[in-house]
Nucleic acid binder design. Structure first.
Length: 572
RNA sequence: CGGGGCGUAGCGCAGUCCGGUUCAGCGCGCACGGUUCGGGACCGUGAGGUCGGCGGUUCAAAUCCGCCCGCCCCGACCA
């Protein structure tokens, strides 16, 4: 492609709207442009990258036995009522009405559609295993789009859905896709970490996230360097700490006028947050439960949900708190709380001589000791993991990092197949619900992740497998001679099947060099008067290394050699 | 949804505090002419603006006040 015949609006300066590297560089390299918050246009170069990633995903999905389909973006809301997910998903869905007055939504995901399809078309155990996937736009009305392509309202996703008639077979389908995912990310030049994750609104029993470690990532990852355990912060299980020995000091009441938060109390009483027992009142179905946790820790509501076995635990309101504790919000404590279940995070075990609310306005208690002053019904792992916490699998300590979630796999069980009637007849003639799995990859987000992991101060350094073109051909100060030589070389390389972006613009050499670095194609070929005089052209890898001078006749061979050495593929 | 920041030419910004002959400005880009020509060249000429929008205060508003819109960042019930 001739640079002069396409649209690559590079930017000399950093756009003020972009904070993270991928966002900044994709804008500067003229690959994407924002329409409005969370919505981007892919310009020719950006689209080529998107397509490269898409092609790799498609190849690996196909060879893992999945079959591509294409489902509508627009979906009837009625389907979401049938699956019972309308309530939880509605707020991220953009809805509208058809002319007939039917409520429609832009699909944020397609479990409902695919399950309805399979319910209608698959009736026998002989037709499974079946895995259907598609690559297409998804729409989610995100509360806060962020970081360019990382979190958009509209994005490109690959979503796959497996159907099996036994747990064992479903497990096998899951493994197959899990392994395909590892190949996909590696082929795209991404280093990923797989972590155990929470299943969230998808439901199901087990799920893994594929995370690209990046400081700009939105998700926290807890990892254990000793045993390799890794999990999303939401999910990371913690080892119970060593209990602290109680003290003999007498319980004492202290006035704390208007001091409601641990932060306020910490400075008022000059005691560290680790000595506070926070008492949070949660609504669990009809009952109210008191949840105790150390003052410096946070309750992980996903864990709490599992511990309480209720759908949506929610913090109790001011009214309920008064009713249960007899005091306003901010002065709750476990001592003397009657007729209510006390659930405590393991962190409470480390508190001896604690501080907690007195269940009376403007009063707190000092020298509180568990067992002596209050009795916990159950200790559980309820805290959001923090650096240095004990690993649940070994004696190691967890580290906390950040990552971009590029893929997510779920074992769904029969949640959707039951709700939407996706059943088959088994060998014995019984009707059984299909066991499902679902598997997503954020294709557009992967583009951002690749840039996060592959850039330097001058610009993007594309892995060859997803680079928009393989070769940047620069004609320096193109007079007639340089121009005609470069034209010839361009035609020759293109005819040989190489993807070449030919910078034929009438701009200065410096601009071409800088733009080439910014755009980040794997190999740069320079044609200029200086080297032409010696009968040579120059090659250089974007990833570094020396400039190589070769005669134009040897150029093709030289390029092929450089491209082959790479771990990437997809060089047709 | 809460908090913070921002909105002036295509892009990056100054001017806003303290209203008025520095108030429509700078750099880059763009167009034309000329000189240059291997890491963002130089000279000259020129085009380009509802100062985010609406309303108000004032003799006078980019500047002060009110409402609204958009964008970016942080946080979303932790007692």
């Amino acid at each position: 492609m001739r640079w002069s015949r396409t649209l690559i609006p590079t930017l000399k300066e950093d756009p003020q709207e972009a904070e993270v590297a991928s966002h900044r560089l994709l804008l500067r390299a003229g690959m994407i442009r924002k329409l409005t918050s969370g919505l981007y246009t892919y310009l020719p170069l950006g689209l080529r990258v998107l397509r490269k990633v898409e092609a790799i995903v498609r190849e690996e999905m196909d060879s893992a036995g999945a079959r591509e389909v294409r489902m509508p973006i627009l979906q009837p809301m009625e389907l979401w009522e049938r699956s019972g997910r309308r309530a939880v998903m509605e707020e991220i869905m953009l809805t509208s009405q058809s002319r007939q007055g039917r409520e429609m939504a832009l699909g944020p995901t397609h479990e409902e559609v695919v399950t309805a399809l399979v319910a209608a078309e698959v009736g026998s155990y002989r037709q499974v295993p079946l895995n259907l996937y598609q690559i297409g736009p998804k729409f989610r009305d995100e509360i806060r789009p962020r970081f360019g392509l990382v979190r958009c309202k509209e994005f490109l996703m690959k979503d796959a859905y497996s159907f099996d008639c036994s747990e064992a077979a479903a497990e096998k389908s899951y493994r197959l896709i899990f392994e395909a995912y590892l190949r996909i990310f590696s082929r795209c030049g991404l280093k990923v970490e797989t972590v155990e994750a929470d299943t969230g609104v998808m439901g199901g029993s087990l799920s893994h996230e594929f995370m690209v470690p990046a400081s700009s990532g939105e998700d926290g990852i807890a990892a254990c360097p000793s045993c390799g355990y890794a999990a999303n912060l939401e999910k990371a299980q913690l080892r119970p700490p060593e209990p602290a020995a109680p003290t003999a000091e007498e319980l004492q009441t202290v006035e704390t006028p208007g001091m409601k938060s641990v932060a306020e109390l910490t400075s008022f009483l000059s005691a560290p947050p680790e000595r506070f027992i926070k008492t949070l009142l949660y609504r669990a179905g009809a009952a109210i439960v008191a949840v105790l946790i150390r003052g410096d820790r946070q309750v992980n509501e996903s864990k709490l949900k599992r511990a309480l076995a209720v759908e949506e635990p929610a913090l109790a309101g001011e009214e309920e708190i008064r009713k249960v504790t007899g005091a306003p919000m901010g002065f709750s404590g476990p001592v003397g709380l009657k007729g209510i279940r006390l659930l405590a995070d393991y962190s409470v075990l480390t508190i001896a001589d604690g501080i907690t609310g007195a269940n009376r306005e403007d009063l707190h208690l000092l020298h509180v000791n568990r067992e002596r002053d209050f009795k916990v019904d159950e200790y559980a792992d309820l805290a959001v993991a923090a650096a240095g916490d004990g690993c649940s699998r070994c004696a190691g300590r967890l580290t906390i990092g950040r990552g971009i979630e590029v893929g997510h796999t779920f074992k769904l069980g029969d949640k959707y197949s039951r709700a939407l009637g996706a059943t088959v007849t088994d060998e014995k003639g019984r009707e059984i619900p299909l066991i499902m799995g679902c598997y997503g990859i954020g294709i557009s987000r992967m583009v951002a992740a690749v840039v996060e992991q592959n850039h330097d101060s001058a610009g993007i350094v594309w892995p060859p497998s997803v680079a928009p073109y393989q070769v940047a051909l620069l004609a320096l100060n193109p007079d007639e001679e340089v121009s005609s030589r470069a034209d010839g070389i361009y035609r020759g390389l293109a005819a040989a099947g190489l993807e070449v972006l030919y910078d034929d613009r009438p701009v200065s050499a410096g601009i071409k060099f800088n733009d080439a670095d910014l755009v980040g194609l794997p190999i740069r070929v320079v044609v200029g008067k200086k080297s032409l005089r010696a009968g040579k052209v120059e090659l250089r890898d974007r990833s570094g290394g020396e400039v190589e001078s070769v005669s134009p006749d040897d150029l093709l061979e030289s390029l092929r050699r450089r491209l082959e050495v790479r771990p990437g593929d997809n060089l047709k």
